[in-house]
Amino acid sequence: MGSVAAEGGLREEPRSFLIGLGRGAAGAMLFGIPMLMTMELWQLGFYIERYRLFLLLVANIPLLVLLADRVGFERTSTWREAWRDATIAYALGIVMSAAILALFGDIKLDTPFSEMLGKIAIQAVPASIGALLGRSQLGGSSGDDEEDNEAEGADGNDEDKGDGGDAVPDQLSTSYSRELFLMAVGALFLNLNVAPTEEVILISYKMTPWHALATIFVSIAIMHGFVYAVAFKGTHELPEDTPWWHAFFRFTLPGYIVAMAISLYVLWTFGRLDDTAPTQMLMSAIVLAFPGAIGAAAARLML
């Protein structure tokens, strides 16, 4: 700290880090509030079977790390930084969930410890995803973003070389799996919003198989339309001589399967599939995959 220049550099670093923290906290709140205000999710906090909650909490770790590698609090370039960002996001998710649940009087000092823990833990998962997304969505100028993209592009190639364990050594496919991963995150995020509510199973009981069929077609059409047809910022372009069904088979259909898989996982986590006939499971998964498909498509556009 001898010279002025060095001091300035040191000051700059914590400041931008604190801004990143603030954005993370804002993101946790913005993305977490619908769930923090859902009664069913509070209830799930104490009746969810602990091993399912544990699995969800553990599964959230690699998800956050991979997501942090894509959108961090700061421009991440190494796995160590991705881990650090993921840890911070998780912690922010826990702190924000605890703070807001306490604010709403949903957890009090005399609440049993196990119930308090369950409520905070289950909320921390979407809130931590929100904390990471806060960085990317509430982020700074567009110039920053472009730099980020470049950095990530270079970064992605490095990982491919390092990641020899991957079944597919080709760098093309890592980008493909990343695309599928982003869709999974988007689907998971919207699913966590919707799945705990009773409406999901109620809708599946109200629907006939014909409704379910229509829902499948509409979900797939929305997914494809979101990404390729409706001109949002970030809409994907197809090379001119590629027929539309190329992207449909390579991205939309796998994306829908990802959304279905995530739906089934979330329904199972929340105990909605217990003692249920396979057809009923499928019906509720189709209902939940509808928001999941929208989330997956949106994730491809935004992240």
Binding site: N149, G153, V168, L172, L238, R250, F251, P254
Partner: peptide
């Protein structure tokens, strides 16, 4: 795969076979 660049992301013209395999599956 998807190329992310300054312009709009666009899908490549010669995708890896694994993309087609996933698509067909």
């Amino acid at each position: 795969m998807t190329e992310i660049s300054r312009k709009q992301p666009s899908e490549t013209e010669d995708p890896h076979w694994i993309e087609w395999a996933t698509g067909i599956f």
